[in-house]
Design a binder for these strands. Structure first.
Lengths: 123, 123
DNA sequence: CTTACACTTCTACAATACTAGAATTATGAG
DNA sequence: CTCATAATTCTAGTATTGTAGAAGTGTAAG
């Protein structure tokens, strides 16, 4: 994944309504959800929803297919996958640092998150 | 990491100039870089840079400390860490799906990234 | 063909974000 | 203290993004 694409995906998810939509899609799984269903669940006007869905499609975070008169949207896990790979690459692809991030932190969010391990920020 | 924070971090990185800045910081490592150095390397006016640095700081992607009359900025790996954890959680925290995403993809960006493993999108 | 339904595109407005020159603050040297 | 340097804040202009009603498109039933 190139930087330009990463920016697009990050920006697509960096908006509350769209992240909400995406989360809903993730929960729904590959079966997908019709646009109207998403709109009513999130209480977003259809026009607004459509705007955001196009955004997600453009960033390849979602894809759509027609089923009768419904349009089903489903999530593209692969894009998140690639985004994470990009972030890890970008973080770990430098000289000597943050080996730990590549080795431990990524797939065990709960267990070994000792403060001060990967940086010293007071978050 | 809550959704609101995730949106903030995603939005912070979802902007080309800021992602460039962050990449530079990552490359520089914990030693950090003075603002002016970043500005001249990226050929961004100082005022513009400062604007984006505040943004990154607010999202806790960078932190700053003074060293003489320089202000050194360094990356917060932990925040990326948390973002990735959030994405994985959000993706994998649903019933039965995407177990693979949690198990494989996250921490080995180079090795086993076989196409079609987690989905079939033609990105 | 007509109607109903599902969704998208059009349109216009509001809000937010980006950019960067100019002014300001803070630090250190002479 | 004065000057130079480093960086931030002020300010204002421009651009982009988000919102949502209204109109349009496509599909399936009556």
């Amino acid at each position: 994944m190139r930087t330009r694409q990463a920016v697009e995906v990050l920006a697509a998810l960096g908006q509350e309504t769209r992240l909400d939509i995406f989360r809903l899609l993730i929960q729904a799984g590959p079966a997908g959800l019709p646009a109207g269903e998403i709109a009513s669940r999130l209480k977003v006007p259809l026009a607004t929803l459509s705007f955001h869905l196009q955004h997600l499609r453009h960033a390849r975070l979602a894809s759509s297919r027609k089923r009768g008169k419904l349009v089903l949207y489903s999530p593209n896990f692969a894009t998140v996958d690639r985004l994470i790979a990009y972030l890890l690459h970008d973080c770990c692809g430098h000289p000597t640092l943050a080996r730990e991030l590549c080795g431990e932190a990524a797939h065990q969010p709960k267990a070994g998150a000792k403060p001060g391990a990967s940086s010293g920020s007071p978050l």
